[in-house]
Each structure stands twice: as C-alpha cells, then as structure tokens.
C-alpha cells in the first residue's frame, strides 16, 4: 500500500460527491413497496428509499435479513413494481425488464439441459435480442476471463459451484448491459472460493466498466468490492448511511487485513447494523 489513508471514511463523501453531479445512471426517488401477507395485512418493505448510482460505479447493499435489499434489486430488475415513487435507468422510467440490465441470482440458476455455451448465449436467443458477431466474440472473451475456456460444451452438473456462478455472471453480461445486478451471488460458496470469486469479479468489473449493484451479507465482501456501501435498516427498509470506500484498485484481499480504512469502515458498518 503506497497511499496512506488516515482520514475517517465519512470525510471522503463531500469531496467526492462534488465532482460527480451529472445525471446518474440509476435514480431511485421516494420508492415505497408494500407486500400483502397471507394473514391479510400489509408489510412495508421499502419506505421512501432514495438512491442515485453513477455510471461505472460499484455499489454494495448491506443490511440485516428482510430489510428490503432484494426487494430493491427486484424493482431495478423489473421483476416487481413499486407502489409509490419513481425509478429510472439512464433517464428512462424503469417499469419492466430492460435489456440494459443483467441479473445474477443467488444460485447460479443455469439451465441444466443446456451446455455452458448454450446457457451464456441464452440472452441473445430470446426476448427479440439479436445475435451479433461482436457480442458473441465478447462472450468468448468473457468466458476466457472467467476461466471457463475449454468448458463451453460441458453441462452445468459437470462444473463446480464457483464455475457455475462465474458462467452465470458471463450470462448476465451477454447482452452487454449497462447495469449488473447481483443478489448475494457468492452466498452459497465456501469462504475461500468466495474470496477468489470476489477478486475475479473485481477483475471482470474493472475490465468491463459496468455499473454494479451487489447485495451481500458479508461486510468484508462489501468493503473489498464496493466503491460505495449502502447500509439499510431492518424492516421497513430505509437507507441509513452511504459510505465511500476509499481504497485503491485493484484491491488485494491479503492487503486489506489491518488496513486502517478497512478497519474503520468495518467497525462503522458493524455498528450501523446492530
């Protein structure tokens, strides 16, 4: 680490925000989401949530279980609609699935009857998408980056859990979307595989320049990956704090331990979650 960062994390926010006052890629304004329950009453899942995400930014959403993180992500994915408020992507109102959005699910969610190649090409063969040479070349490059070269004709059951999840990331990037949404993509993996996947995701993200919104339960993962960490409160889901992560890239997990910025952030998030 050549850059010594001693200032507390909170002090970074003001300065950074001033330079990025263009219109954000995603603008979520006063979004409210209510779910009906089986018993007949309603649960407030999101309570006037406001969130702007800049193009190219890596945002991590953390919060206790049931705080509405997944609800927020489903709204952005177009799988649900909000009950009040607006959300827009690149200036256009979001009210359904968009080809500019790629989604990575908690499970790899590959179709077991297709090979890896058929799975990652799926986004180009449905929903009226066009299969361009350029996109296919790009997918082949992504498979290489994801370490799946030589596994194109294997079936998902022949792959390890980590490889399956990497294939699903490639699939989510197949249409070259502006935005990548990830709902605890590595939750099902063991700690070591997870750390490696984080490093690879960072590499894929740095190479592609996508905007990423990632939900995680792991504070470590959020600090390692995020430019910004959005902390949510227990139900009803509200955003309680946004923290900038001022650590240089590429980040290396072994250098994170004992780093004062990392330690301060981790402590702050932990206190917010309690």
């Amino acid at each position: 680490m050549t850059i010594a960062i001693e200032a507390p994390a909170g002090a970074m926010i003001a300065g950074e925000q001033a330079q990025s006052r263009r219109s954000p890629l995603i603008a979520v304004k006063d979004v409210v989401k209510v779910y009906p329950t089986v018993a007949g009453d309603a649960v407030l899942a999101l309570d006037h949530v406001n969130l702007d995400i800049e193009s190219g930014e890596f945002v991590c959403l953390v919060g206790p279980s049931g705080c509405g993180k997944t609800t927020l992500l489903r709204l952005l994915a177009g799988l649900d609609t909000s009950d009040a408020g607006t959300s827009s992507l690149a200036g256009k109102a979001l009210n359904g699935p968009s080809p500019e959005v790629g989604v990575v699910f908690q499970q790899a969610n590959l179709l077991p009857w297709f090979t890896v190649m058929q799975n990652v090409l799926l986004p180009l063969s449905v929903g009226g998408a066009r299969k361009s040479e350029q996109l296919i070349t790009q997918i082949q490059a992504l498979l290489r980056v994801a370490g799946l070269e030589g596994f194109e004709n294997k079936y998902p059951y022949e792959l390890s859990g980590g490889m399956q999840q990497r294939a699903s990331i490639v699939r989510a990037l197949a249409r070259d979307p502006k935005l990548l949404l990830m709902d605890e993509p590595f939750g099902a993996l063991d700690a070591l595989t997870r750390e490696r996947m984080n490093a690879e995701l960072q590499r894929i993200w740095m190479a592609s320049g996508k905007t990423v919104v990632l939900i995680t339960h792991s504070i470590e993962e959020a600090i390692f990956l995020g430019d910004r960490i959005v902390v949510m409160s227990p139900r009803p889901g509200r955003i309680v704090r946004e923290l900038k992560v001022d650590l240089p890239r590429p980040r290396v997990s072994t250098e994170m331990l004992g780093n004062p910025v990392h330690t301060a952030l981790a402590r702050e998030i932990r206190m917010l979650l309690e």
Partner: peptide, 27 residues
Amino acid sequence: VERIELMKVLSASRLETYRLVKLPSAA
C-alpha cells in the same frame, strides 16, 4: 420459479419460456 424469473428478466416471450424452460423442466 428462479428459472422462470430468469426468462422474465430476459423479456422472453411466453412461448420461449414454455419451450426453453417449462417443457425441459417437465421432461
């Protein structure tokens, strides 16, 4: 459900979802 939601995210038509997900699932 996750597989059907995947098709939904991809704006797949009803027939595409039937042919590529539901029919193979039922195999």
